[in-house]
């Protein structure tokens, strides 16, 4: 088993006719993901890489049985795309788009949750269950099927860690990007709970960064609820306070969200914390 996506996932791509949407649709199809529909308002009736395009998500879902969506829509239209996916009843919504205003996301995150859908992102790389399905923008060839669950706030840093795992023969059950914005649909805790229940996942790698308190909450959850070994890395030990480090969510403010505080919380919960990304496989092998 994997979590969230597998061979049965029927994926719809919102923004399929755009540069990124079209490119990654082809990549996901090549990986074996069942991309059953695309949506771009006003472009219904076209096809992209053989995938039929619809004007609305509701129609696409009705006619193709899509049960998950990935959003490549530009920031200014992405909020509407999120609401549209939630209204169409899709169970999993993955938002790649970066730059959605935070106050808009406060309402959207609540709305999506109230509709019973799971949201990953915004501003994340998506997720992949190696050998089964890729719903995201990550380079496929760095992954390997196996027992390690990976959850991260970052994109390329996750690739770095996954590549290090794969080179040591440590495959992955599912790699999940939760997104780098201050307000995202799913937290570390949400994904840790899924990995804990997943029979195939035998160890978990958590990749955090400065800003917010998501890692501290994850530490508290691991201490009481997670029985599988967890290895972590936290980026941003050399970041100064009050400066946004690229990601809207990566900022130390009011003395909160430092790498040190996160590392200490994780260590106190029994998590092995790596000094740099390439040390992670070694710690996984030891645990």
């Amino acid at each position: 088993m994997s979590i969230l996506v597998d061979r049965d996932t029927r994926l719809l791509v919102q923004g399929i006719t755009g540069r990124e949407g079209a490119f990654h649709t082809a990549q996901m199809l090549a990986y074996g993901t069942r991309v059953v529909a695309g949506c771009t308002p006003g472009k219904g009736g076209q096809t992209v890489a053989g995938v039929p395009v619809y004007d609305t998500v509701a129609q696409a879902a009705r006619e193709t049985g899509a049960n998950a969506s990935i959003i490549y829509v530009p920031a200014r239209q992405a909020l509407d795309a999120l609401y549209e996916a939630a209204d169409a009843g899709l169970g999993l919504i993955v938002c790649i788009t970066e730059g959605i205003p935070v106050l808009d996301m406060l309402q959207a995150a609540r709305y999506v949750a109230a509709k019973g859908a799971r949201l990953l992102g915004p501003n994340g790389p998506g997720l992949i269950s190696p050998g089964r399905a890729k719903v995201g923008i990550m380079p496929a060839h760095i992954h390997l099927p196996g027992p390690v669950g990976v959850v991260s706030r970052s994109g390329t840093l996750t690739y770095e860690v996954v590549w290090a795992l794969t080179q040591r023969g440590l495959g992955q059950s599912t790699c999940v990007g939760i997104g780098g914005d201050p307000i995202v649909g799913s937290s570390f805790v949400d994904i840790l709970a899924l990995f804990e229940r997943d029979a195939e996942t035998r160890a978990i790698v958590l990749i955090g960064e400065i800003g917010g308190t998501d890692e501290e909450q994850a530490a508290a959850f691991i201490r009481s609820e997670v029985h599988k070994p967890v290895v972590a890395f936290v980026a941003g030990q050399s970041a100064p306070p009050d400066q946004r480090m690229g990601h809207a969510g990566a900022i130390i403010s009011g003395g909160q969200g430092t790498a040190q505080s996160k590392i200490e919380a994780l260590q106190q919960a029994g998590v092995r914390v790596a000094a740099h990304p390439e040390q992670i496989p070694e710690l996984v092998l030891k645990s």
Binding site: S154, G155, T156, E160, A235, G236, Q237, S238, G246, A250
Partner: peptide, 20 residues
């Protein structure tokens, strides 16, 4: 670097090896 998380990790590793 490409990506904020990897950029921070790259910064951090220069410190790990004794620079900044």
């Amino acid at each position: 670097v490409n990506g904020a998380g990897l950029a921070m990790a790259t910064m951090d590793i220069t410190r790990l090896y004794g620079s900044a």
